[in-house]
Structures are given as C-alpha cells and as structure tokens.
C-alpha cells in the first residue's frame, strides 16, 4: 500500500457537475482523513450518487478536482481504481450466478489468480455470513443477503478507500442493523469509508464526520455532536395522548420555544427547541401544561437529533425533491396519515 502519501484519503475541491439544466453538484468540498468514515447525508436528488460516481472514476466532473489516495480521479483514473472499492446504489451482482461465483469472478478480474480468488471468496462469504447460501444462485437471496454479497464484492480487492452508496436503503430494520454491524467491523480494520445515506440515524451511527448536502451544495459539515450543537441547545419533547388537544398543548409551551415547535404527524410527538436553559423550560412547561389541563406522556428533554439539524439548516425536514415536478414530498419516518385527525374523528 502507498503509505508514502500523507494527505487525506479523499480530497475534493470545488467539484461541479451538471446534466443539462440540472446542477447536480454546485461546488462541493470534502476532506476525509485516512481510516475515518465520512457520512454524506442528503435527500433524494441531493447529488450523493453523482459525487460518488465522480470519485470512483465513472463520471467526469465539469469543474473542480477530486483526489483519492493522492491520485486525481480524472488524470490518474487507473491509479484511483487500484485503491478503491464501490458498492453502488443497487446491488451489482449477477443473480443467476452463485454467491461464490460472483466473488470468484471479481477476484479473477482483480488478477488475484485462481487459488487466491477462491480463498478470498471463501473468506468474504464467511465474514458476511453467507457461507451457507454460498453455492445457491444469488436470485434466491433475500434483499439483505444480496446487499451483503454486493458489499463483499466491493472488498475483494482489499481497497484502501471504500465507497458505499446508500448501503441500507430498502432493507428491513433487522437487515439494516446487520449491515451496520458489518460496516463497523470493516472500519475497525482501518478502511477509509465514504458512505451516503438518506437516514439521519445511519450517519449518526456510523460516521466520524458528516456532511449534509442539499441541491448539490454542502450546507453543513462536522461531527454529529457539532451538527447537533448547530440547533443551539436542547429539545423539549412530549406526546399528547388526547390527540385533538395537541394544538392547545403547543400553544401552552410556545412562549418557551426558541424556534418553531414541530409536531410529528405520524407519531404525534411534539418537539420544541428550548435553547440552553433546558431545565427551566422543562419546569415551566410542566406548569403551563398542567394549568391548561393537558395530559402528556413521555415529557422530557433531549439532545437534538440530526432530524432537528436538518430542520434547522434547511428550514424543512429531510424531504425529497421531485426533480420532474418540482414538488416536495415528505419521506421516511415522517410520512404517514395524520393520526391526530383519525383519533379525533373516532372519539367524536
């Protein structure tokens, strides 16, 4: 390995890329020190895949530059290819072939030789808990297993820098946790990792540093703790079991709020940014809610989550931008029927 190079594993400066009128990247900067994990967080269409494709030599940037392990992704593309692994947004495996065949073929294409390719495949199948299914056609694999096989394929060449584009999108919660486990063990082995995700908790869980991108621009960067600090303090949170009274509850605590109170329509959880005097606010809120005769459950203070960060940074929750229509849709956990309404109707 090229230990001689001392700079960051990934360095990106002023990277731009447009597809016709669509400005997928409007000048992003990144620096990922060796052996660390960068989480690139952004909603649909933010430009995550475009950035990954440029860094993995699949796409030429319009402007700016990108270095991986000190090599320019355009001028020294083949040097870059020798040091990276890529697991793209869809599982790039051949489903007609077995798990083992998929990995052995990749090994041969890395010029490992027959015996070493076989050994490496066996080792990876073991590591990714696929040994039992190894000799079945990959089309019989579950989505989680296919994803793991795809990740294994990206590691055949023992890359120094690994790119994972939304590794857990579409997985059920259990497979997601399994995937996190696998990724953590990889990182423990010293691999530099750039991971894109739409899930705030995923970035929080896996990344040392996080950059938030939206509309092709980095809108925030830092550790998870630093980003949470950007929200400026604590969040008061509670649920109102009597759903029709949520509005009254919000009104009762509005005077404490240092930002816009947020009601999650799915879960009915009310979050109120209360700034630095969290405990005062907590006591005040108990009083006000009690005076107003509103029962609450789970009342408490918490450190802000990345959801709050996104809200604070962009003025909207992590939404997806529909490129075709320009319309916005709520996504992920925040989606769902406004249950407050349903409950209201049911009780009347």
């Amino acid at each position: 390995m090229e230990q001689s190079f001392a700079g960051p594993a990934i360095l990106v400066e002023g990277l731009t890329k447009s597809f016709g009128d669509v400005h997928a990247l409007r000048g992003i900067d990144l620096s990922v020190p060796r052996g660390t994990v960068l989480g690139v967080l952004g909603p649909n269409g933010a430009g995550k895949t475009t950035a990954v494709r440029i860094l993995t030599t699949l796409l030429r940037p319009d402007g700016g530059r990108a270095l991986v392990e000190g090599h320019d992704v355009v001028r020294e593309a083949s040097a870059v290819r020798r040091s990276i692994g890529l697991a793209g947004q869809s599982a790039a495996i051949q489903i007609e072939l077995t798990g083992r065949e998929n990995l052995e073929i990749i090994g041969r294409l890395y010029h490992l030789g027959r015996a070493a390719s076989k050994a490496r495949a066996t080792e990876l199948l073991e590591q990714f808990d696929l040994t039992e299914a190894a000799d079945r056609a990959a089309k019989t694999f579950s989505g989680g297993m296919q994803r793991r096989l795809d990740l294994a394929a990206s590691l055949v060449g023992q890359p120094q820098v690994l790119f994972l584009d939304e590794p857990t999108t579409g997985l059920d919660p259990r497979s997601r946790l399994g995937m996190w486990e696998v990724i953590r063990s990889l990182v423990a082995g010293g691999t530099t990792l750039l991971l894109t995700t739409q899930y705030l908790d995923e970035a929080d869980e896996l990344a040392d540093e996080i950059v938030v991108i939206d509309h092709g621009e980095v809108i925030a960067a830092g550790t998870s703790t630093e980003l949470k600090g950007r929200v400026g303090g604590d969040v008061l949170e509670f649920t109102v079991p009597d759903r029709p009274r949520v509005g009254d509850a919000v009104a009762a605590v509005t005077k404490l709020a240092e930002g816009e109170p947020h009601i999650d329509e799915g879960t009915g959880v009310v979050s109120v940014p209360v700034g630095v005097n969290g405990s005062d606010a907590l006591i005040q809120s108990v009083r006000s809610l009690d005076e107003a005769g509103i029962e609450t459950s789970g009342l408490g203070l918490r450190r802000p989550s990345l959801d709050d960060v996104f809200l604070a940074l962009t003025g909207h929750a992590a939404e997806e931008e529909d490129a075709d229509t320009g319309g916005k849709r709520r996504r992920g956990r925040r989606k769902g029927q406004p249950e407050a309404e349903k409950a209201g109707r049911a009780s009347s």
Partner: peptide, 14 residues
Amino acid sequence: LKKGVIDRFRSMPM
C-alpha cells in the same frame, strides 16, 4: 448497465 454491474467493472483496475 441498469443493475450497476458495468459501474462496478468500470471502477475496477481491470
């Protein structure tokens, strides 16, 4: 191309 197999090949030193 659609499944990303070609992307993987193109990102490899083959």
